[in-house]
């Protein structure tokens, strides 16, 4: 048990180190950090002095170690463009992205899973057919198109919802939230739907096909043959078994919600880290870019770790050892 968790944590640690290495090389080798810090007229000696003082002449492993130890202390350097600490830029932007992503994830899970179960259990009903054909749109239309369509209908045509921005926000300590004002909530609706739609349909289709698979298994047939009620068979036996494989993929999907937020944030000019990243690319703001990379990777790793542990508790085949002697 402890060893399982330890092994997983160690694995995550290794993954994070690899990402840190990529992020570090971006930082070190793409563009010249000095050129972005000093004026064009600075003399070569001055540049060299700066190099020395920033430790850019040290051996690469030493630089990497310094990079990692700074990252652990949440120091990611100074933005080239804004001349501010990257960490405070992120701290400002992150709540917007997290609020959007978490709401989308809840939408995707809260609608996707029940819809998957419903369409699996009532395969022939007209409602299932409707939901399934509808989901095709969700899968096939690109996210930005959905966003633009929504803006066109609800902002341009009917003036019901704002087409960009986060509305009014309230500052709760370090966290800025849009959930407490009417305009903040209104602004959240369309981006959240846009971001959730693809994952929702994916999760629904996944749950549906997995559940259909489970309903065909021998143990479901045997459970029916013993006269267990439909409720026990469907929700006590089938659903549990459906969720075991679904958990993994769903975990990854939630990770990609945060990653995909880039597109949605761009379409809706949502002031989150995704938009920040796009701006950083335009401005070749390497520290911001590499920090964003690290951030997204750590989200993925944390989600993955959670999923693995969850899996471990749901599936006794992992938890309880096989007993060879019977």
């Amino acid at each position: 048990m402890i060893s399982f968790i330890l092994a997983r944590v160690l694995q995550s640690f290794v993954v994070m180190l690899c990402v840190a290495a990529i992020s570090f090389s971006l930082f070190t080798y793409v563009g010249d950090p000095i050129a972005n810090l000093v004026g064009i007229q600075s003399s070569d000696e001055k540049r060299e002095e700066l190099r020395e003082s920033l430790g850019l002449n040290d051996a690469v492993p030493v630089q990497f170690a310094r990079f990692v130890s700074r990252a652990v202390r949440m120091e990611f350097g100074i933005s080239y463009q804004q001349k501010r600490k990257v960490s405070s830029i992120i701290a400002e932007r992150l709540p917007a992205t997290l609020e959007l992503s978490i709401l989308s994830a809840l939408l995707a899970l809260g609608i996707g899973i029940p819809a998957g179960i419903y369409t699996a259990l009532h395969r022939e009903s007209w409602f299932s057919h409707l939901v399934l054909s509808g989901s095709l749109i969700g899968v096939s239309l690109p996210t930005f198109l959905i966003g633009i369509l929504l803006i066109f209908v609800f902002s341009v045509q009917f003036h019901l919802l704002p087409s960009f921005g986060r509305g009014e926000v309230v500052q709760l300590g370090f966290w800025s939230t849009g959930l407490l004002t009417e305009s903040g909530l209104k602004a959240l609706i369309m981006p959240a739907i846009t971001l959730a739609l693809f994952q929702m349909t994916l999760i629904m289709r996944l749950v549906r096909s997995e559940m259909l698979e489970v309903l065909r298994t021998d143990y479901i047939k045997f459970a029916r043959a013993r006269g267990l009620s439909n409720r026990t068979v469907h929700f006590g036996y089938a659903l549990m078994n459906t969720l075991v494989p679904v958990i993994t993929i769903t975990g990854l999907q939630l990770g990609s919600i945060i990653a995909f937020a880039i597109i949605t944030e761009t379409v809706f000019q949502w002031p989150g880290v995704g938009l920040m990243f796009i701006q950083a690319i335009n401005e070749v703001d390497i520290p911001v870019m590499s920090t964003y990379l690290l951030l997204i990777a750590s989200f993925f790793v944390i989600i993955n770790l959670t999923v693995d542990l969850l899996y471990y508790f749901v599936d006794p085949r992992l938890r309880v050892g096989r007993d060879v002697k019977t």
Binding site: D218, R224, G227
Partner: peptide, 23 residues
């Protein structure tokens, strides 16, 4: 359903897959 299991029982071929693995 009240007849199945109560009056007529059934056993299938593969014991490895006949039981719910999670209970």
């Amino acid at each position: 359903r009240r007849i199945r299991g109560r009056h007529i029982g059934a056993i299938f071929q593969d014991p490895l897959t006949s039981l719910n693995p999670l209970h």
